[in-house]
Design a protein around this nucleic acid. Structure first.
Lengths: 132, 132
DNA sequence: TACACAATGTTATATTATAACAATTAACAC
DNA sequence: GTGTTAATTGTTATAATATAACATTGTGTA
C-alpha cells in the first residue's frame, strides 16, 4: 500500500460524526457519542483524529482542544489554517481568505526560517454576542 | 486593592524560572523544578501561569501546551502573539514584526466579527535543522 | 478596626492524550 | 495463491495536562 485512497472504518465513522455535528467537538465527546458504533476506547478516537488531521479532513482548534471538519474544499492537506473564535458562545468559523493565506504563506521571519505550515486563531465576539 | 502593581510570591517565583530557562516550558516541569521554592501543587503553578498570561508577562504556545516568557517589551497585555516553531528541535521564537501585527490587527473577516486578540503559530525548520 | 478582594494551601478529581503489545486486515509483488 | 509489508484494530494501562471546591491567610484601604 503506497497511499491511502479511502478511509478506514473507524476513520470514516469519526469523520461522519464530526461533519454531522458541524461544530468543534472534543475527543472524549466523540468517544461517548460513538459507543454504539464500536468506538469504545480513547485510542480509537485519537488514531482516527490523527489521520484525519494529517490528510486535512479535519482541523484541531488548538486553544480549545477541539476538532472541526474542514470547510475549505482546497484544504487537501492542512498546512494553512485560520479560525475565528467567539469567546462568548465559542462559535468557531474557518476563515477562507485568499489574501490572508497568501500573505501568511509568503511571510518571512527575521531568522530566515523556512515555514511549511501555520495556524492562526482570532478571538473576539461574534455578531450575535456583541449585541447582547 | 484596585489594581495589582507587583507580582505575588508564587507569581514571581514562576516568572523568574520561566525567564531563566528562556525556552518554552511545561507546567509540570515548572512544578518539578520549583519544589524547593515551595511550589508543591499543580494549582500553585497554574494559578501563577494564568495571571502571568493575563498580564502579558508570558505566553502560552497552544500547540505545545508550553509557556514562554514574553520577549516584546511592548506586550503589556498579550493580545497579539506570533511564534515560529521548529518541528525538529522544537525551538520557539516570538515573532516581532510590526507589519505582520498591523496586518493582523486590522484583519476583518467576512462575518464581521470584532476581534480583540489573535495567536499565530508558524511551523517549519529552523536554520540549524534545515542544513542537517 | 473592618471590609473587600487577592493570593495561598490542600485534597481530590476531571480532562486530554499516549505507551505498549498482540491480533487482524488490506495492498501488492511475485 | 503465497509471502511480504504496512496499515489498522483491539485492549489494558498509564501519562500528561488542567480544574473544582473549600478553608485559610495576606494586603490595601476606607
Amino acid at each position: 500500500m503506497l497511499k491511502q485512497e479511502t478511509l478506514s472504518k473507524n476513520q470514516q465513522i469519526v469523520l461522519d460524526y464530526i461533519e454531522k455535528v458541524n461544530e468543534p467537538i472534543k475527543a472524549y465527546s466523540i468517544l461517548h457519542n460513538l459507543q454504539k458504533k464500536g468506538i469504545k476506547a480513547p485510542l480509537q478516537v485519537y488514531r482516527a483524529l490523527d489521520k484525519l488531521v494529517e490528510i486535512g479532513k479535519i482541523h484541531k482548534i488548538e486553544s480549545r482542544n477541539a476538532f472541526v471538519a474542514c470547510k475549505n474544499s482546497n484544504c487537501q492537506i492542512s498546512k494553512a489554517t485560520a479560525f475565528s473564535i467567539c469567546e462568548s458562545c465559542e462559535e468557531v468559523s474557518e476563515i477562507s481568505d485568499s489574501k490572508l493565506s497568501k500573505y501568511l504563506k509568503n511571510f518571512q521571519d527575521k531568522a530566515g526560517m523556512k515555514f511549511n505550515k501555520y495556524n492562526l486563531e482570532f478571538f473576539g465576539l461574534c455578531k450575535k454576542c456583541s449585541v447582547k
